[in-house]
Amino acid sequence: MRVFIGYVSMSGNTEDIATLLYDELNSLGCDVLMECLDTVDTEELLTYTGVLIGSYTWGDGDLPYEAEDFYEELGDKKLSGVMAGCFGSGDYDYPKFCAAVDIFASKLNENGAQVFDQLLKVELSPESTEQQMACKEFARSFYFWLKERNIQHVS
């Protein structure tokens, strides 16, 4: 199973989440590629079994500057058949906690992707054991969700 993890991270928090997801998916036997969203060609998304998009939230619920080009490149690109999930970091001190995660999930859904119904939202950095376990559980749940859909797709 090929999984792509694309993310943007300013302070390293979202990158830390992406790394936890990468490690867990890799341990499950997935072929995982992880890279920053600003280097991603959106056409590549169509070549993966699963796609995870991660972003921190800027200001009062905005996409960060580093994610805007990727978001715009998605435009109205047809993503039928793409199975995607979203994750990110945020800060409860702001009015729209992890809104970038919701923005990406909506965009992927609008473009025809099947979006995993669990969204991973982490306050700041995944430093606590509880936060790290939540990241690993999200990765495992995403893996089994992909596996289930691939079996249905092949049948």
Rank of each mutant, 00 (worst) to 15 (best):
Y92Q: 11
F97G: 02
L79R: 04
L146N: 03
K107M: 12
T49V: 08
R149E: 07
D60C: 01
A84W: 05
D76P: 01
A105T: 08
G12E: 08
F70R: 14
D60V: 05
V51G: 11
D31S: 14
A113D: 10
F87V: 12
N109W: 03
S9R: 03
L146I: 10
L37M: 14
G50Y: 02
M34T: 07
E137V: 10
V3C: 02
D31F: 09
E43K: 14
N150E: 13
E35P: 05
L119K: 11
L119N: 08
T57W: 09
P64G: 04
E148D: 12
G85A: 15
N150M: 08
S141N: 15
A105H: 09
Q118L: 14
R149G: 02
F4E: 06
T42M: 03
K78H: 13
P126N: 07
A139G: 00
R140S: 00
L146M: 05
N13H: 15
N26T: 12
A18C: 06
G112P: 11
S125F: 09
K147R: 06
V115K: 04
Y94N: 08
V51L: 15
V8S: 05
M1V: 07
E68P: 03
S11W: 06
Y22N: 12
D117A: 03
G81Q: 09
Q152V: 06
A139L: 01
E110C: 14
L108D: 05
V154G: 02
L45R: 06
V115C: 11
D117W: 04
E15Q: 10
M1S: 07
D41M: 13
V122C: 15
G6Y: 03
R140I: 00
D62T: 13
K107H: 13
V82C: 07
F97P: 00
E44M: 15
A67W: 07
L146T: 02
V32S: 03
F138T: 00
L119D: 07
W58H: 06
P64T: 08
S89G: 09
E72L: 12
G54S: 12
A100Q: 04
D102F: 11
I151D: 12
E127L: 00
S27M: 01
T57Y: 05
T47V: 09
G59Q: 12
G85Y: 08
E44Q: 15
G85P: 12
A139Q: 01
M34N: 04
L146D: 03
E35D: 15
S125N: 09
Y65P: 04
S155N: 11
V101Y: 01
M10S: 08
E72H: 13
L63P: 12
K147P: 05
D102N: 14
F4A: 13
A139Y: 01
M83V: 11
T39Y: 13
T49Q: 08
N150K: 08
I17R: 05
M10C: 10
D117F: 06
Y56L: 05
